[in-house]
């Protein structure tokens, strides 16, 4: 059955059986099967990775409750974290994670929105030439470098200003603020650019000042986009591990203030997972923390979708 597909010459001579010729599989059909096979396989690999990631982490994470019979309520509300003594109150880490995430988002959002307004409304030219590279560089700096600078600059600074060790939520907030700033800014820029030009022109034509136009027309119609940007920033902050772990002090106790050592889910995981034995309660408890991280990441994801859907509906009306 060795036949080349290129039969143009033969066709001229044996031109009677067109039906067979137009129905038989050729190199192109085989290529398409192959191509389909390869690309379906590749997408299948990705789906398999995601599915097994969700499955493994979930099954590990719930072992604390199903095998060690710790009550979920105690896990979520308990404030004592000493897994080797059987105390696994995860509240300190949960509070720590949410505290740094919200604090970082609250500090970063005005900066991000301001920068985005500058890039889109005040000086698009400087925005493109100067700020775009600035944002890209800030994204590009690895998180360990942020952590190192936090350790070398922010922590000593805090120590000298407010006293104590310098480690704590406030230092983590500072570091995360810079880390989520580029994320929020670049997405806000996108959503400001998506505001139809005539909105702005109509407002300016009515005699509104630039700030009135920006604050009442542009920011308002870009709100869903900005919200999405902030949530993406929060997701990044919530999941950031090393930079936070390096500056927060890693004390698994309820944070009483912003300037004493605390810990987050991620920081507890990075420091703890290597020291525990697979299958034991201390190990399972850490996987439960990982499960919270996973669920929160899914939650942020869903939130972004809901906002996107709402925004779409609004536009359609």
């Amino acid at each position: 059955m060795e036949q080349t597909n290129f039969q143009l010459k033969q066709q001229k001579t044996q031109s009677n059986d067109w039906s067979a010729r137009l129905h038989h599989a050729t190199r192109a059909t085989r290529e398409d099967w192959l191509g389909k096979g390869i690309s379906y396989l590749c997408i299948g690999v990705i789906i398999l990775v995601v599915a097994s990631m969700l499955w493994f982490i979930t099954s590990k994470g719930i072992a604390t409750f199903t095998q060690n019979h710790v009550s979920l309520g105690k896990f979520l509300t308990g404030t004592d974290w000493a897994p080797d003594q059987g105390k696994i109150g995860a509240l300190p880490m949960i509070v720590g994670s949410f505290a740094v995430t919200f604090a970082a988002a609250i500090v970063a959002t005005p900066f991000a929105v301001g920068t985005a307004i500058f890039m889109t409304e005040i000086s698009p030219n400087k925005g493109r030439k100067l700020l775009q590279p600035v944002i890209e560089l800030l994204v590009g700096i690895p998180s360990v470098v942020y952590g190192f600078i936090g350790l070398a600059v922010v922590v000593p600074f805090m120590r000298s200003v407010v006293g104590g060790s310098g480690f704590g939520i406030i230092s983590a907030t500072f570091v995360l603020f810079v880390m989520v700033l580029p994320t929020i800014t670049s997405m806000t820029v996108d959503s400001l650019r998506a505001v139809p030009r005539h909105f702005k022109e109509a407002s300016l034509a009515l005699g509104a000042t630039r700030w009135q136009t920006v604050s009442r027309v542009i920011l308002r119609s870009a709100t869903p986009g900005i919200l999405t940007a902030v949530i993406f920033g929060m997701a990044r902050a919530f999941g950031e591990a090393l930079a936070v772990q390096m500056v927060i002090g890693n004390a698994a106790i309820m944070p009483k203030n912003l300037i004493s050592p605390a810990s987050t889910l991620t920081s507890q995981l990075t420091t703890g997972i290597g020291d525990t034995i697979d299958g034991t309660l201390p190990n399972n408890a850490l996987w439960s923390l990982a499960l919270i991280l996973l669920l929160m990441s899914l939650f942020f994801n869903a939130l972004v979708r809901v906002i996107a859907k709402r925004g779409q509906l609004k536009h359609e009306r």
């Binding site: 990705i46 789906i47 995601v50 982490i57 919530f238 990075t270 997972i273 990441s297």
Partner: peptide, 27 residues
């Protein structure tokens, strides 16, 4: 659904990805 799965994978914290790798390959 496939796009959502990819979205989920991209939004997972890298520490979670690392822990999954640890669980799978090391443990």
């Amino acid at each position: 659904l496939i796009r959502s799965a990819i979205e989920v994978l991209s939004s997972l914290p890298s520490v979670v990805v690392g822990l999954f790798g640890f669980l799978l390959f090391v443990v």
